[in-house]
């Protein structure tokens, strides 16, 4: 299968297989009017299988969000057909307005324009907790 290489844009590579669609949705890539490719279960020497997202235009990627969904991923910035930057990711310590708390008793459910904030509470098990109610993020 061939996907054209991009001249100016972003490639999110080494996404853990199965997380590409989740990332596509969280990054709201469906709202872009440029070419966007989501490749699933691509053979990878490092990961066995991986997902890849290619965005055919400059795009300000929320790195915290990518790191949260798939800290193994790399974000590659391409300009004039050349790789100009390769960003390695890690689990972010804090997630701001990336995910929302699902605890019906949490103040973030009702307070207007609240900052939805989660902190990494267990790096090993990738556990984030809401700063308001300490409920674990799903």
């Amino acid at each position: 299968m061939n996907i054209d290489s991009i001249q100016n844009g972003i490639v999110i590579d080494h996404i853990a297989a199965g997380n590409g669609m989740k990332l596509y949705e969280l990054l709201e890539l469906d709202k872009l009017d440029c070419s966007v490719a989501l490749l699933r279960n691509v053979v990878s020497q490092k990961l066995g299988k991986k997902d890849i997202i290619k965005i055919d235009r400059e795009f300000d990627v929320n790195l915290d969000l990518v790191g949260f969904v798939s800290p193994e991923a790399t974000v590659v910035v391409i300009k004039n057909g050349e790789i100009v930057e390769k960003k390695k990711l890690d689990l972010p310590e804090v997630l701001i307005n990336v995910i929302r708390c699902k605890n019906p008793r949490c103040i973030s459910m009702t307070e207007q324009e609240i900052v939805h904030e989660f902190r990494l509470s267990d790096r090993e098990n990738r556990v984030y907790r809401c700063v308001y109610c300490e409920t674990k993020a799903n």
Binding site: I107, M109, E111, V131, E134
Partner: peptide
């Protein structure tokens, strides 16, 4: 005091 968890932090 507030019934919603996290309200005092807000």
């Amino acid at each position: 005091r507030h019934p919603k968890e996290g309200a005092p932090l807000v």
